[in-house]
Design a binder for these strands. Structure first.
Lengths: 328, 328
DNA sequence: TTGTAAGCGTTATCAC
DNA sequence: GTGATAACGCTTACAA
């Protein structure tokens, strides 16, 4: 491996001079700079980031800890974070916690050991309690899920309004017996249930059901089957993420319930398949690109100025009306 | 940050002794070991991996460079690699190249700079040519796409047989005018087209069409529209990945072509949505868990013994027959 | 069995 | 403007 020493020797200067030329942070005679740059080019030299981060006590890596790498929402975020970080010369270590608090701690330790500059993180609710011990040792930005303690930067959706709008859309289209399926591992599900309830109240209605369950396909399926078998069957279902939606849809298929006439259906997040099923699903699309980019920017700001006061950015979703929510 | 020096001081020994206790690679007096471990526990010391990798000239990170993080196939691989690597105490840097040779080179350089122990990589065909210059500087395992030069470990699907089986399934179910849509960026698409052709030959048939296009939803859509408008319209379509399938399905919807009666449909890779659309899609499922795990094991073997002769592991897919390929 | 010290590739400090 | 040199945290000859 070619090091700064090789370049220094080739250019007939000291390693310090090479470093200065590359960092461009000190006055250098034009001719010296030229010689150094030639040597760099000739030897195809690239600085060793490990050594640099050891010396600098910081690195150009950030961590992205998500709860499910197979959830399209999080891969979209990952893509956005990667792009934004890359523009700043940072690379992204993506980790998958599977909604498991033990894995969350494991990976956060790992990233700390790896000396990452900071972490973008979507925590489970269980983890929130022990979180304070971490946010002092490295910069954090929380995404998707509000943290109970407010001492951290966050990028969130206006979940209450988004769920309100989605619910009102159902109500405006004549549905009256609404059921909601919400994730039980994060604050997100709770907030979305609030918007759901609020919209119903505005119409002087009560929900047929509001269930908090693990945000998995299987649980979405089971809960939907139960709703269909209940004496007070809903005429529309709202789900708080795309995995629950997939399960709900599977259940409706199995029970041969027609959407949107027998059952209206709305959910969160754009997916590949949401427009391919029949009818296509009406969703509240989250601005994943903007969430990822904003979180990354916030993280860089905190890295630069660790003592700045924490900032919470609230973004809005976009209602995409398709066929699953309008009776024919 | 607490360092090895702090531990040494607290235990009243030298840093070398602490290092030896932790590495467990030298005889240490039982009592000294005890004192050191106590100090480690008390100070909550964890070795700095950056420093360790600088000194050791190697790290416990591996890179995973995939062409599209949003393709369910690659996220499933990522999950498997992460699990397998984690069991060995390795972490995974996941990078996304977007089928872009420039980005491939960029990320490979990045990972090299980061001193990763090795890389698992799904390259574009364009990249194959310049690949030799890299495989000497760090261990590599290629997945999903065969490399032209054979000097590298690879984990591949038996694409020819898989496509043959998928095609034969269509033929066995009475479809005769088959069209194939294959990705144009990798060897995978080409191999799958061979199996496709071979099955047709066994039935003394020729394909209606075999197109090589960028493996994106949009291109799958456009190609399918063209097929539908052509004078020799096929009665079944095979796609070589799930993104092309998504595009094809969208086109069939827009043109109101009924599946499977007017058009049979088969493709590669299991997806969330493949079973939710109506009818569900018949696919050749790849053993993603096994691919990821095998690739990781192969990489560790090469890291340990860089001169061992390269090995290619060929795995088989599983045909999952659903409603999209059987006329009613 | 343990300590001393060199060195991994950088960059920052202090001389000149 | 430039060059020595120390230091980042760790491991490993070499000594003792």
């Amino acid at each position: 491996m070619t090091s700064i020493k090789d370049v220094a020797k080739a250019a007939g200067v000291s390693t310090a001079t090479v470093s200065r030329v590359l960092a461009n942070n000190a006055p250098i005679k034009a001719e010296t700079r030229k010689r150094v740059l030639e040597a760099v080019a000739k030897l195809n030299y690239r600085p060793n980031l490990i050594a640099r981060s050891l010396r600098a006590q910081k690195s150009t890596k950030i961590g992205l800890v998500v709860s499910d790498i197979r959830n399209p929402f999080f891969t979209a975020i990952g893509r956005a974070v990667e792009d934004a970080a890359y523009e700043q010369g940072y690379s992204v270590l993506m980790c998958n916690t599977d909604e498991n608090p033990e894995k969350e701690e494991l990976y956060l330790n790992l990233l700390y050991d790896e000396n990452v500059a900071g972490v973008i993180f979507s925590p489970t609710q269980q983890f929130s309690a022990s979180f304070n011990s971490y946010d002092t040792r490295m910069p954090f930005v929380i995404i998707d899920r509000a943290l109970e303690s407010k001492g951290t930067d966050m990028v969130l959706l206006d979940n209450v309004s988004a769920a309100y709008e989605l619910t009102k859309h159902l109500l405006d289209n004549g549905y009256r017996k609404l059921a909601g399926l919400f994730g039980d591992v994060s604050t997100t599900g709770q907030e979305r249930s609030l918007g759901f309830q609020k919209a119903l109240e505005d119409f002087q209605l009560k929900p047929v059901a509001a269930h908090f369950i693990p945000p998995r396909i299987q649980q979405g399926y089971d809960a939907t089957i139960a709703l269909l078998d209940s004496t007070n069957r809903p005429d529309a279902i709202l789900t708080s993420n795309s995995l629950l939606m997939a399960g709900a849809l599977q259940a409706l298929r199995d029970k041969k319930i027609s959407v949107p006439n027998e059952m209206g259906l709305v959910g969160f997040d754009e997916t590949t398949w949401g427009e391919l099923v029949d009818p296509p699903i009406t969703v509240m699309a989250q601005p994943t690109e903007e969430i990822g980019r904003t979180a990354t920017e916030l993280l860089f700001q905190r890295i630069q100025e660790p003592s700045r006061s924490p900032k919470t950015v609230i973004l809005n979703g976009t209602l995409l009306v398709k066929g699953s929510s309008k009776k024919k």
